[in-house]
C-alpha cells in the first residue's frame, strides 16, 4: 500500500520528466545520420516489398483472381498499411536493457531518483513521435506518386479507431520487449527469445499473411491476442473490412493486455533487481 502511495506521489515528477527523457532519446537517436535514416525512415519498408513479390508470384502461378476475398490489389493495399503501421511498432532493437543488464550498465539508473519506467516511456514517446512522422511521410509520398491507386482510409472515424488500437498495441509490444529483456536477469538467451517472439508476432499480427487468409481456428486464437489488434485489425478498419463492434472488442483486448503486461513488467523488473549483481563483484 505504501509502495502504491509512493508511486502515486511520484507520478507528477515522472510525468514532468517524460518530455526531457524523450528529448534526450531524440539526441541519442539522431547522433548518427546513417543509423537514423536506416532505423527510422526505412523501418518496415523491405518486408512489404518482398511480400508483394511473393503474392505476385502466387497469383501468377495459380491464375486465381482472389484468395479468400482478397484480390492482388487488396493484398498490396493491406501491405502498404501494414508497412505504415509497422513503422510505429517497437522492435527488439528498440530496447538495449538486456545488454545493459549483462554488461552492468543498468547500475547507473538504480541510484538515480527516477523510475526506469519513465526512461522506458520517454524512449517510447520519442520513438512513436518520430515513427508517426515517418509513417505519415511514407503514406504522403505514396499518395503523391500513385494518387488514387494508393490506399485511403475508408473514413476519418476508421482512421481514429485504427490509431487508437495502434497506440495501445505499440505499448503492449514495448512492454513485451521489456519483459523479455528483463529475462536477462535470469537467462543468457534473451536475444534468441526476442528473435523468436518477433517472428511469431509478425505471423500473429498479420504482417506476413493477412489473418483473414488463415484457417478459422487459427483466426479464433489470434483474435484475442494483442499483435492481431495492433496491426491486422487496424489495417482492416482502414480498409473497411471491420466495423465499430470489432473496434470495441479490440479495444477491450488491448486494454486488458496492456494492464496485464504492465503488471508483469513491473513484477519482472522488481524480481530481477533482487537477483541483479551487476558486473565487478
Amino acid at each position: 500500500m505504501s509502495r502504491a502511495r509512493a508511486l502515486a506521489a511520484s507520478l507528477p515528477e515522472e510525468l514532468h520528466l517524460l518530455p526531457y527523457v524523450a528529448a534526450y532519446e531524440w539526441r541519442k537517436a539522431t547522433a548518427f545520420r546513417a543509423g537514423f535514416v536506416l532505423n527510422a525512415l526505412l523501418r518496415g519498408v523491405p518486408r512489404p516489398v518482398v511480400m508483394t513479390l511473393v503474392y505476385l508470384a502466387m497469383f501468377r502461378s495459380t491464375g486465381a483472381a482472389e484468395i479468400r476475398g482478397y484480390t492482388f490489389v487488396d493484398l498490396v493495399h493491406f501491405l502498404v498499411w501494414t508497412a505504415a503501421i509497422q513503422k510505429c511498432i517497437p522492435d527488439w532493437r528498440s530496447l538495449d536493457l538486456a545488454e545493459q543488464i549483462f554488461d552492468g550498465y543498468v547500475t547507473k539508473y538504480l541510484v538515480m531518483p527516477v523510475s526506469y519506467f519513465t526512461l522506458l516511456w520517454g524512449r517510447f514517446l520519442q520513438f512513436t513521435a518520430v515513427q508517426l512522422l515517418a509513417a505519415a511521410a511514407f503514406w504522403c509520398a505514396g499518395a503523391l506518386v500513385l494518387h488514387s491507386w494508393w490506399p485511403q482510409p475508408v473514413s476519418a472515424v476508421a482512421l481514429a479507431q485504427a490509431a487508437t488500437l495502434l497506440a495501445l498495441g505499440t505499448g503492449c509490444y514495448l512492454l513485451t520487449y521489456f519483459i523479455l529483456n528483463c529475462l536477462a536477469f535470469w537467462l543468457d538467451v534473451v536475444w534468441s527469445l526476442l528473435n523468436m517472439f518477433m517472428f511469431v508476432a509478425a505471423f500473429m499480427s498479420g504482417m506476413l499473411v493477412p489473418v483473414a487468409l488463415m484457417p478459422r481456428a487459427v483466426r479464433g486464437v489470434l483474435e484475442v491476442t494483442f499483435p492481431y489488434w495492433t496491426v491486422n485489425a487496424p489495417v482492416e478498419l482502414l480498409l473497411g473490412r471491420l466495423g465499430p463492434a470489432d473496434f470495441r472488442f479490440g479495444l477491450a483486448v488491448l486494454a486488458t493486455s496492456f494492464v496485464a503486461l504492465h503488471g508483469l513488467a513491473f513484477v519482472t523488473w522488481r524480481r530481477g533487481l533482487r537477483r541483479y549483481a551487476g558486473v565487478g563483484t
Binding site: Y24, R27, K28, A31, F32, D103, G104, Y105, T107, K108, V111, V279, G280
Partner: peptide, 13 residues
C-alpha cells in the same frame, strides 16, 4: 555513484 569501469553518461552524445 561513479564507476570507473562503467560509464554513467551516454556514449554517443
Amino acid at each position: 555513484l561513479v564507476m570507473g569501469q562503467r560509464s554513467q553518461l551516454w556514449w554517443d552524445i
